[in-house]
Structures are given as C-alpha cells and as structure tokens.
Design a protein around this nucleic acid. Structure first.
Lengths: 208, 208, 208, 208
DNA sequence: CATGAATGAGTTTTCATTCAT
DNA sequence: TATGAATGAAAACTCATTCAT
C-alpha cells in the first residue's frame, strides 16, 4: 500500500518536476531568464509557488538544471556523429548542422543557454556545464583537427566557434525575426559551408 | 566670457558622461547588465547617483546608448571594407576578421551586445539598433552574395551568422577563458575559413 | 480539517488587512496621506513591508479602499434618515448632524477624505467614489429640494455643500484645535441652522 | 547709475517673484501641492531653477507665502463688510457670499488652502496663518454672535464653519465638475441661506 | 509533501536643495 | 544675482526564499 501510494507520490512528483522544467524553459526563453519570475513558472506548471523550492534549491539551480538538460539533449544528438568515422569536413558539417537544427527547433534553448552560460544568470555551474559540452565537441573534433593541421591545444576554440555560431544565430535572430523560418536546406548549407571553410586547411601557416 | 565658462561646464558634463559610459560598459561586461547596479557605475565614474539620471532617462536608455555606441564604433571599422572592391571571399573574410578582432579586444562589448540585444535587458531599441547594423552588413554583402548564388532575400541571414559567430565566440568564451588569448593569426584563419566556406557556392541548389 | 486550517489562514489574513486599514487611516489622518509612508503603516500594523502589497496593489489603491470604507460607513448612518418621511428642514438638519457627528468622532476620516478626494492623492477612483456618495445624498434630498423650490438639476450642489461643510470643518479645525471639542449640542445647532437656512425657501427668485 | 540699474534689478526681481507666485498658485491648484515640482514652477515662470531658492527659503516657505497672499487678498474683500454696521444675518450672508464668490473665481486658491492648511503640505506656518484669518472673521462676527446668543468663546467655530464651507465646496467640487458653473445667484442664495440659518438663534436649548 | 502568505533586502527613480560658475 | 548641473536621502515596489499549516 505504502508501496503503491509511494509510487504514486513519486510519479506525481516527477511529473510536477518535468512540467516545471518544461514551462520554465519555455517562459525563460520568451521573456528572458531575469524577467521570468518563479511564480509564473509555477503557475504555468500548475503547482504552488512553494513547491518549486522542494524540487530545486534556488532559481539559479533551476537554471543550471535546465542548462544541463538542454546540453544533455543536444549531446545525445551530436555524439552519434562521432561513431561512424568520416572525413573531417563531413564531421564538421554534420556537427554544425545538428547544432543549427537543434536550436532552430528550440529557440528557447538558445535563449536559455545564452543567458545562463554568460556572466549573469546561471551562476558558475552553467558555464562549467557548457565547458563540458565543449570538451565533448573538442574530443570528437580532435582527430579531424589533427588531419587539418589545426593545433591540438586549440581544438576547444574550434568547438566554441561551432557552438557559438549556432546558438548566437538564433539568439540574435529571434527578436529580429530571423532564423526561425530559415529553410532547413539553407541552414544545412550554412553548416556545410562553415565546415568546408574550417576544413580547408591549406591556410598559410599562421605564425602566432 | 560666457564662452569659456560655458565651455567648462559642458566639458565637465561631457567628461562625466563619457566616464559613465566607459565604466558602465566595463562593469556591465564583467558582471552582467542586470547584476550591475546604477550606483556601481556612478561610483566607478566618480559622480553622484542622481547624476546618472541627468544624463540618461533610465538604465535601459543607458544600455541602448551603449549599444548604439559600440555598434557605431564597429561599423566605422567595417564600412571601409566595402569601398575597395574585392572578390566575395575576401570581403567575407575581411568582415569576419574585423568583427572577431573587434570583439576580442572588447569582450565587454560582446557581453553587452549579447545581453542587451536579446530578449531581456536593453529594451526594444537595442534589438532595433542591431537590426540596423545587420542591414549595413547585408548591404555590403549583397553584391558578393549575388555572385555566390546566395538568395538575395536571405542576405540578412548571412550577415547574422557572421555577426553571431563573432559575438558569441567571445561571449561564451569569456567565462571559459577561451578566445581572449586566441592568437590573431588563428582568429584570422577562422575568419577566412568561415569566409571560404560561405563563399564556396558550388553547393547543390538548396530546395527549400 | 481543511476547513479549520483554511479558516485560520483566512482569519489571520483578514485580521492583518483590518489592522492595516485601521492603522493606515489613523496615521494618514494624523500625518497626511503623503507624509505617511507605507512602512510606517506596516510597522504600526505589525506586519512586514511586503505584506502590504499582497493586500493592496499600491498605496493609491489602499487609499481608495480606505475612502470607500469610510464613505460606506457614513452612508450606513445617513440612509436611515431617508426612510422615515419628514419635512425638508428636518431632513436637512438630520443629514447635516449625522455628517458633523461622524467626522467629529473620526477626524482622521475627514483628513483622509479631504486629501484623497481632491486633486492629489487618491487617484481618480477616490473622487469618483465621493461622487457616488453625493449621488446618494442628492437622491435623498431630491424630494425635499423640490418642495423648497430648489432647482432639481442642482441638488448635487446642495449635497456637496452639506458634505463639504462637515468635512471641511474638521479638516481645517484639526490643526487649529477647533471642532474636536465642540459640544454636540452646538454641532447640532450648527447643523439645524444650516438646514433651516437652506430650507427657508422664500428667497426672492434668483435671476442669474 | 547704480541707482537706476539697481532699480532695474529690483524691478526684474520683483517681477520674477510675482510670476513665480502666480504660476505656482496656478500649477499647485491644478496638480496638487505635492505633485507640483519646483522645476515646473520655474519653467512656467521663465526663470532658472536655482532662482526659486533666492526668493524663497524652501518649497514649504513658498507655499506659506502663497497662503498668506491668498488669505490677505481675501481679507481685503471681507473687511469692508465689518465697517458698515448691519444686522447679524446680513453680515453673515455678506461674509459667506464674499467667500463663496472669491473661491469660485479662484478654485486654485481653494485647492491651495485646503492642501496647505491641513496636516500635510504647508508646514505649521500655513495653519497659523489660517488661524489668523479666522481670528479676523471671528472678530467681525463677535457682535453679531452676541446678538444671536451664540457663545462668545465659540465664535471661532462660527467663522470656521463659514470658511470651511466655502473652501470645501470648491475643493471637493472641482474634480466632480461641481461648483465652477454654479450661477452666482444660487451661490448667493446658499450664502444667505446659511446665514439665515445660523442667524436664527431661537433654537430650542439643545440638551447635549 | 504541497501550499501560498509573509518577509525584507535590494533596486530604480525622483526631487528639493546646494553650489560652482 | 541667476543659473542649471550635481547630489543623495528617501520611497514605492519587487521577488526569491522561508515557513506555518
């Protein structure tokens, strides 16, 4: 009895948490992390205000959690590309395309990441979490980079550029009504173009 | 007589305003637009709290002004590239490089733009101002885009990508200690790479 | 179960609200609506500053509420006079006396009304509310006015004079230490006098 | 030379002061004493903000001065009534009519007096000044009161009622669009009525 | 646990007053 | 003396967080 009712409880609890996260992401994406008040989230999720704090230590922790979730989701889509070996350019193009598509479908995610992982909003945890995402990307890119003559100790920068481009495109595009309706084909072309550019390693040796 | 004393007055006033803007940009870049209080800015600028509001109608107006200033500054460096005719790839590469260098030297500017031109922080004016910057870039890119077979009505997206990449690179890079020390040569290479990629127009025609 | 606990909750809340209103009326009456800070009211009521705004949307709304309450209270004492039919003079005298007695016992109410229903303090709502009170008085006075040959379309002015006299007497009297100790008998005499004067309709027809 | 230029100076100064007072009365009457900012007054008067404080020690002192001026103006019109001896009722009626007419023509004055002489606005000086005005009225009324059997030590209350009625009528009437267009004849009738009432002293002894 | 009322630190903004020119 | 820029003490209001029920 306690078993089943306990299970019920946990089910309800998990459901509430999911709704909180869903609605929170949506609202924060639209109104901004700061402008979005805890109460709005709980109202949208259909729970009491106090409940929020039984699930998350603070608003900041909530944001960090959201960031983690988004980046985890994204990683799940990127990782497979690293399994099937492919040439450097294709890999870059694929990773770029995945990122672009991901954020085109989830502009709120782009908004959240931008606000949370910068200097003001998600605390240090969010930035660290982004760092780990870049590590993943860098790791995937490392072999390709080597073949392209890209300095190994700078692969993170390669990853960063790929990431920043995708997120920034939709973050800045949102308020300008740009990006949301960019045809997938064009988006892919952008991704491939970026890849081809980055992959075309016959640059004159950059004397630092 | 009135000249000299009046001049003094206006000089002092103009100086105070410049310091307010300087310190404000610096602080907002470091701590974030929201976390940066008006009083901190006035203290850093060495003026009283009330003085801030004799120069700017509100904090939001202050931010908008800052955005305008930064983008004006940036435009002044980009525009010349449009005067000397060059091939599409070089133009793209140049514009990318200018943006990257600009924001590498001014990470606070990248931070400000990111926070102010998104959904939360600078009001609608800031986003509009960014729109005008993209118009400038799009106008410069239009001829090149035509030669590359890039759809004319999508040139703003090209501009957006170029811009978002540069700003995002340093916005996300900042807290991760990435980007600040990327050698200029590598930065140029990134710019050129992006350009070459975007310029290499032999993509299969993107069927929307 | 929910009943008892919920009842407690609401009881506490209602109690706090009542104390807020009571203390607010008292303080605003003594120090003036503007000079009286929200925090003073909450302190006097023994609640936190923020609590004030969970009960009232703004200080202005609070004042409007107070005005409504005071005028409602007053109306409850005036209305019965309209039920028992009486001659015009007695009606006027009675209404005047009720008003005078009411505000003598509640100088804070006179102070509040004066400040809130004028051009500065209670917003437009307060003035409107006063308008409705005058409507009530005018409605009660209408039959009497007719008998006195007082133009029907000017009955509101009759009501206004009655009201203004009573409120003004204690508003201006307060700081001058006048009115507070005026014996009831004298007050009644004033009321009756005013009534007799206004009722004595044998004025020569006033050719405007 | 100093003489003539000094005269000029003083002329200008006196002119500025008069304009300040005029515009101040007008503005405060319309917007309320608190809502009316010093800068608005100086702008309306066409002088610099700082100039205000070379003429008046503070905003409060300015209001007190205004009150003094208004009441002085009013007294100048009331006093003559005391010179020509007349019966009690006529005296009361005359004084009432003068007050009513005065404030009908100057609703700003009614507004100013109401706000300044109460508990919040004009400081203690304004209330004292009103006290002196009532003294004048009381002095004029004293003989009449005696004839009417009105207690001599309560004559001030008689004066207060007369005054409060006139001011209050236009203060409360203003926002309600009442009083401003009341025909003079009706106003006089109100005054006379009030007088007749107050004068008719054969009240049955009021058993408190 | 869930709830929502209570809380008060913190923030922007206003405005009378001062003072250098 | 006239001016208006500078000043900072307030004051209303917000909102994340706590806690009694």
């Amino acid at each position: 009895m306690t078993d089943s009712s306990g299970g019920r409880h946990e089910k309800r609890r998990a459901l509430a948490e999911r709704r909180l996260l869903e609605e929170g992401l949506k609202l924060m994406g639209v109104k901004g992390v700061h402008a979005c008040k805890v109460q709005e989230i709980t109202q949208a999720a259909g729970v009491g205000k106090g409940t929020f704090f039984t699930h998350f230590d603070s608003k900041e922790a909530f944001v960090a959690r959201l960031v983690d979730q988004v980046l985890g989701d994204l990683a799940r889509r990127v990782r497979p590309l690293g399994l099937a070996p492919s040439d450097a350019e294709s890999l870059l193009a694929g990773m770029g395309a995945v990122h672009l598509r991901f954020f085109q479908l989830r502009p709120e995610a782009a908004a959240l990441i931008t606000q949370a992982c910068g200097r003001d909003g998600g605390g240090p945890q969010a930035a660290e979490r982004l760092g780990r995402h870049l590590d993943l990307l860098a790791q995937m890119l490392a072999p390709a980079a080597e073949r392209l003559g890209w300095p190994q100790e700078r692969v993170r920068e390669l990853a960063l550029m790929l990431f920043a481009t995708s997120v920034g495109f939709f973050w800045f595009g949102g308020p300008l009504q740009l990006g949301g309706d960019t045809p997938l084909a064009l988006l892919d072309r952008l991704g491939r173009a970026m890849a081809r550019g980055l992959a075309g390693g016959e640059d004159p040796p950059a004397a630092s």
